[in-house]
Design a protein around this nucleic acid. Structure first.
Length: 496
RNA sequence: GGGCCGGUAGCUCAGUCUGGUCAGAGCAUCGGACUUUUAAUCCGAGUGUCCUGGGUUCGAAUCCCAGCCGGCUCACCA
C-alpha cells in the first residue's frame, strides 16, 4: 500500500479506536430500522398532505439506516446524506438536539454506515430531512469512497470493484436491479405457461449442444476429464424424452472464446423445450415473452438504444434468411452451394474469407457481416441451411433447409430456436457430419457427437419446439448499453 | 493476435508535442471558522515508485528501446 493511502487509512483506524475508547461499538450486530429513505420521505409527503397550509409539518420519529455519502459540517449543525437500498435521505444533526454525541460526529466519515432516529421535516430549501435526535454507528469504514463528483470512471476498477461502482453510480445499481427483475419476470412468464424449471449438469463429459470451444477440467476421484457445459440443450431434450413436456432452465453456460463487448466467457441463457410445438409456436412465445418482460421491468415496450427507439411490441417481422442474404449481399446461397463458389462470391463483395472455413462457417460470416447489422428493430430470421444447424429438423418441403429461426434486436442475435430434430437416424448422421467437419477444419468449432443424447432420443422424442435466449444480450437491450460488461455484475476482464 | 489511445496523489485529471521553478489542481484527508446546507463556503496544512526495467543526456514524468497493465477497435468467436 502506498504511503498516503496508508495515512488515509490510519486516520480512520485512529477514529475507530477513539470510538471504541468512548464505549461505542463500531460494528453492532443489528439495527431496528423503521423506515427506508424512500419510506421516510413518503411519510413526510403524507404528513404535509394531511396538514395542508400549516407550516413546518413534522412526522413521527423514524429510524433510518444507510451509508454516509455526503457530509457537510457547519459548526453547531451538520448535514449528511445517507444512502440505502432505495435512495438517499438527508440528516440534520444539531448540537442542541444531540448534546455530547454531537462532538462524536467528528469521528464519522463518508462511507460509514449509520442509523439515525428523529422526525422528518422539510428544510427551507425544500429537502426532506431527518432531524436527528439519536444516532448509532452501524459500521466504520476504514477505506474511503471514490471521488464524489466524478465517481469511479476507471473501467477496470468499476468491474473489479463493482461494489464501488454500485455505491457511486445510480445507473449501475439501476441496471443490476433491472436485470434481477427481468429474470423474475421471465420465470413468471414461463411458469405461467406451464413450464417446469430444472437444473441440469454444468460439468459434462461431452461439451455438445452448440458450436463452441469448451473449458476443460478434471475430476480427480473419478480420474476423468470433464468440461463446463456450453449449452443446456441436450440434457433438456432428454427430459422431453422423459415426458416432461414443457421444461426450461435459466443458467450459466461457458465458452472458452474471445472476450469483447458482446461476449463474456460465462453468460446466462434461458433454454426451453415444449413438446408438440414447432418453431412457429416458439416465435410467438418469444415475442410475447420479451414484450411482457419489458412491460414488467421497464413499464414500456419501447427502449432507447444508442439514440434509436426500439419497439418490442409483437408481432415481429419474419424475414426469410435466404431472401435477406440475397437482398443484402446479392448472394444466393442455395445456388452457391459449395465452398469454392460461396467463397469466391463472398470475396467478390469484399468479405475476408482467408481463413479456412466450412460452407456453414462461410455462410455464418456472410450473415453476420451483411444482414445482422440491419436488424435493429426486433425481427426473426427464418429457415437456415441444414449445414449450419445440426440439431434442427428439416423443413417439410425443402431438405436443404431446417426449421430454425434466430431473433435479433439492436443488430445482436438474442435467441436461437428450432423445431427440434427428433429423428434419431438423421440426428446421428448430422452429429457424425459435425465430427467429420471438425477433423477437416481444425480451426473451426463444430458440434460434437453425444452418444448418451442419441441413446435418449432413440427411445422416442416427441415433436418439440426448442429455444435458447441470451439473457445478457437481452439485458443490454433493456439497459440500452452496448457492452455486456454493463449488465454482468462481475464480468471477465480481458484475458492476460 | 494486429492497429490506435492510455497508465502522474486514495479518487477525477492537467503537465509530455517543445527535456531544466513540473511535482500540480479539484475532491478526499488534517487543523480552524460557521445552527437550514446540499459539488456547502471561507482560512491554513500534508500528501507521490510520474506503470516497470534499461538507454540517451550535465539533467528525463517528458525523448528512445523492451516489458507489464488497461481501454477502444479489427480479426477470431454464434
Amino acid at each position: 500500500m502506498s504511503e498516503p493511502e496508508n495515512q488515509l487509512m490510519n486516520v480512520r483506524l485512529e477514529k475507530l479506536q477513539r470510538l471504541r475508547d468512548a464505549g461505542i461499538d463500531p460494528y453492532p450486530h443489528r439495527y431496528d430500522r423503521t423506515h427506508t429513505s424512500k419510506q421516510a420521505i413518503d411519510l413526510l409527503d403524507q404528513a404535509e398532505a394531511e396538514h395542508e397550509g400549516e407550516d413546518e409539518a413534522r412526522t413521527e420519529s423514524v429510524s433510518v439506516g444507510g451509508r454516509i455519502v455526503r457530509y457537510r459540517g457547519m459548526g453547531r449543525a451538520t448535514f449528511a446524506d445517507i444512502q440505502d437500498g432505495e435512495g438517499k435521505v438527508q440528516m440534520l444533526f444539531r448540537r442542541n438536539n444531540l448534546g455530547e454525541s454531537y462532538a462524536t460526529l467528528k469521528d464519522l466519515d463518508i462511507g460509514d454506515w449509520m442509523g439515525a432516529t428523529g422526525p422528518v421535516f422539510r428544510t427551507r430549501t425544500g429537502e426532506a430531512t431527518v432531524e436527528v435526535q439519536d444516532w448509532t454507528l452501524l459500521s466504520k469504514a476504514v477505506r474511503g469512497l471514490p471521488e464524489k463528483w466524478h465517481g469511479l470512471t476507471d473501467v477496470e476498477a468499476r468491474f473489479r470493484q463493482r461494489y464501488l461502482d454500485l455505491i457511486a453510480s445510480e445507473d449501475s445499481l439501476r441496471i443490476a436491479i433491472m436485470r434481477s427483475r427481468a429474470i423474475s419476470a421471465l420465470r413468471r412468464f414461463m411458469d405461467g405457461r406451464g413450464f417446469m424449471e430444472v437444473e441440469t449438469p454444468m460439468l459434462v463429459q461431452v461439451p455438445a449442444g452448440g458450436t463452441a470451444r469448451p473449458f476443460a477440467t478434471h475430476h480427480n476421484a473419478l480420474d476423468r476429464d470433464l468440461y463446463l457445459r456450453i449449452a443446456t440443450e441436450l440434457h433438456l431434450k432428454q427430459l422431453i424424452v422423459g415426458g416432461i413436456e414443457k421444461v426450461y432452465e435459466i443458467g450459466r453456460v461457458f465458452r472458452n472464446e474471445g472476450v469483447d463487448v458482446t461476449h463474456n466467457p460465462e453468460f446466462t441463457t434461458m433454454e426451453s423445450y415444449e413438446a408438440f410445438a414447432d418453431y412457429t409456436d416458439v416465435m410467438e412465445m418469444v415475442e410475447q415473452m420479451v414484450f411482457t418482460m419489458a412491460q414488467d421491468v421497464l413499464g414500456s415496450a419501447t427502449v432507447e438504444f444508442e439514440g434509436t427507439m426500439i419497439d418490442l411490441t409483437p408481432p415481429w417481422p419474419r424475414l426469410d434468411l435466404h431472401e435477406e442474404i440475397e437482398r443484402r449481399s446479392g448472394i444466393d446461397f442455395l445456388e452457391a452451394n459449395d465452398i469454392e463458389s460461396l467463397k469466391s462470391e463472398m470475396a467478390a463483395i469484399g468479405l475476408d474469407v482467408g481463413h479456412q472455413m466450412s460452407w456453414g462457417g462461410l455462410l455464418d460470416k456472410l450473415l453476420s457481416d451483411t444482414v445482422e447489422p440491419h436488424l435493429v428493430q426486433p425481427s426473426f430470421l427464418v429457415d437456415y441451411p441444414v449445414e449450419m444447424s445440426p440439431l434442427a429438423k428439416k423443413k417439410r418441403d425443402d431438405s436443404r433447409l431446417v426449421e430454425r429461426f434466430e431473433g435479433f434486436i439492436a443488430g445482436m442475435e438474442v435467441c436461437n430456436s428450432f423445431t427440434e430434430l427428433n429423428d434419431p437416424i438423421d440426428q446421428r448422421q448430422r452429429m457424425e457430419q459435425q465430427e467429420q467437419l471438425r477433423s477437416r477444419f481444425e480451426d473451426e468449432d463444430t458440434d460434437r457427437l453425444d452418444e448418451e443424447f442419441l441413446t435418449a432420443i432413440e427411445h422416442g422424442m416427441p415433436p418439440t419446439g426448442g429455444l435458447g435466449i441470451g439473457i445478457d444480450r437481452l439485458m443490454m437491450v433493456f439497459a440500452g448499453r452496448r457492452s455486456i460488461r454493463e449488465v454482468v455484475l462481475f464480468p471477465q476482464l480481458r484475458s492476460r
